[in-house]
Amino acid sequence: MNKELTEEEMRQALFGNPQISPRVSLPSLTEVEADIIAAPISRAVKKKPAKTFTPRLLVTLRVSNEFEGKTYEILHEADTLSTLLAEQEATKAARRKYRYVEVVSVKSM
């Protein structure tokens, strides 16, 4: 067996026979210039970013303004994957209106 291979034989062994693509003719410069000149100048249109999936957690809170009084359940949607951050955000938002806040549950939406 021949242990000394030429560079061409190694390339052929690794990559196989190369497929030669047909030549593509390029338009002449005058055609390109004519297309550029003839094209009207349009204003740049701002593309809106695609709506991507945002992770959301649904936090259920039990709130009240009276100690051991009538309580209400409120829901808060947090745009995060962290349950701790979602709890803190919901509690902070509920404290603006209510004095007593208790976290009941945190669920993924």
Rank of each mutant, 00 (worst) to 15 (best):
G16S: 05
K107N: 14
V45G: 04
L84Q: 11
R11Q: 08
I74N: 03
T60P: 07
R96I: 11
M10F: 03
L29K: 07
E102W: 11
T6C: 03
V63D: 02
Q88C: 03
V32T: 12
R23P: 09
E102G: 01
N2V: 06
A39C: 13
S21E: 10
V103L: 15
S82N: 14
F53Y: 08
K51Y: 04
D35K: 14
I36C: 09
K97Y: 12
K70E: 15
E66L: 14
T71A: 14
N2R: 11
K70F: 13
L14F: 11
Y100H: 14
R23L: 14
A93E: 09
H76Q: 07
L14M: 10
N17R: 08
H76T: 05
H76C: 07
S25D: 15
R43P: 03
M1H: 08
L81G: 10
A50E: 12
K97D: 03
T52I: 12
S105C: 03
R95M: 12
T80Y: 02
P49M: 10
P18D: 14
K70S: 11
I41Y: 07
V59A: 00
K47W: 06
T30E: 15
K107R: 11
A50F: 08
R43L: 14
K46A: 14
E7M: 04
K3G: 02
R43N: 09
R62D: 11
S82I: 04
P22C: 05
R62P: 04
L14V: 13
V32R: 08
E73K: 10
V24I: 15
P27C: 07
A44Y: 14
T6R: 01
M109P: 06
S42V: 15
E87D: 08
R99G: 05
K107F: 04
P49V: 13
E89K: 00
K48D: 14
L26G: 08
R95D: 05
A13W: 08
L26I: 13
L58W: 10
I74Q: 10
M1I: 06
K48G: 01
L29D: 10
K107E: 14
L85H: 11
T80H: 05
T60F: 07
V59E: 00
P49Q: 10
R95Q: 15
S42A: 13
H76I: 04
E8C: 00
L84T: 09
P40N: 11
V32I: 15
L26P: 03
S64D: 09
L5R: 00
I41V: 15
P18Y: 08
S25V: 11
S42G: 03
T30K: 15
A90M: 00
K48C: 04
P27W: 05
P22W: 07
A78L: 04
E8D: 11
D35Y: 13
E66N: 13
A13V: 05
A78S: 10
